[in-house]
């Protein structure tokens, strides 16, 4: 376990010094510009829009980081041959994969935490600038702690996406890995439709395939509770619990596959 954490620590250090800080700066600038512009242009809806925009930005920037650093951590190491230095030390290939994954998930968690702080900072500022009458008109408080439920589920989704990116990067090029991961991310958000497919097709074989795909492809829709938390609608603890349990199971399966593929690989 110590070896996995050592690899994770180095992967974290490397990725934090790479592109993540710039992404965070872009995110912060975007948030500030958006909050300023929207508060100038809209009346009454500005808080809801900022809440929506902030959570959406966390998802999108998080996805970019998860995909592009996720694929880079393994496939670029293989491509640039830096993997030779590591795999000739007392490190198994499984430890390498798990360490890289933990390092990137830690990077994402730190990144998301910073974005969350910036997000709450803007909401706190909005709250401070609003009059008592405006605050009374809001259906939910500006700095509603339930927004954190959405952030936790965004983190869960990003952890799944990172595992997908890592798995693809164990056997394909960085570009192909990125395309495949983004493809799965998109299909993951429409996965629920596959379940209803048998109601719209007559052929049992097609319905059977659709059902099979429903179980194999990631189901990412349950991770999206942004609308619920923005409108102050309840998100049950069981939904959060089961969704995170699903994430853990799916990640475990992906990492087992990634290790199995990586173990058999030749590094030319």
């Amino acid at each position: 376990m110590r070896t996995i954490w050592i690899v994770a620590g180095a992967a974290f250090k490397e990725s934090v010094r790479d592109r993540v800080p710039y992404t965070m700066v872009v995110f912060a600038v975007l948030m500030m510009a958006a909050s300023y512009l929207i508060s100038e242009l809209t009346a009454g809806q500005d808080l809801k829009i900022i809440k929506d925009l902030g959570l959406a930005a966390m998802s999108v920037f998080g996805l970019v980081i998860a995909v592009f650093i996720g694929i880079g951590l393994v496939s670029k190491e293989v491509e640039r041959k830096s993997v030779f230095g590591l795999l000739t030390k007392p490190v198994t290939r499984a430890q390498f994969i798990l360490g890289k994954y933990l390092g990137l998930v830690t990077t994402l968690a730190v990144n998301l935490s910073v974005m969350t702080v910036a997000y709450y900072g803007v909401l706190f500022y909005m709250n401070g600038m609003a009059t008592e009458a405006m605050r009374a008109g809001w259906p939910v408080p500006a700095t509603d702690p339930r927004l954190l439920v959405a952030v936790v589920l965004i983190m869960g989704e990003l952890a799944v996406v990172t595992a997908i990116a890592l798995m693809f990067s164990t056997f394909s090029s960085p570009l192909l890995s990125a395309m495949l991961t983004l493809g799965l991310w998109v299909s993951g958000h429409f996965n629920g439709d596959l379940r209803q497919f048998e109601q719209v097709v007559d052929q049992p074989a097609v319905a059977w395939i659709a059902r099979g795909l429903y179980y194999v492809l990631p189901n990412l829709a349950p991770f999206n509770v942004k609308a619920e938390v923005v409108y102050g609608m309840p998100v049950s603890a069981s939904h959060v619990g089961f969704t995170l349990l699903y994430a853990l199971t799916y990640i475990a399966a992906l990492l087992v596959a990634a290790v199995a593929i990586f173990r058999r690989r030749d590094f030319r």
Partner: peptide, 20 residues
């Protein structure tokens, strides 16, 4: 050989030393 762009020589070697 090629190593990690964003680590210093000292950091890289400390990393590998810990792996040993």
């Amino acid at each position: 050989p090629y190593y990690y762009d964003y680590l210093t020589a000292e950091e890289l070697l400390a990393y590998f030393a810990r792996l040993f």
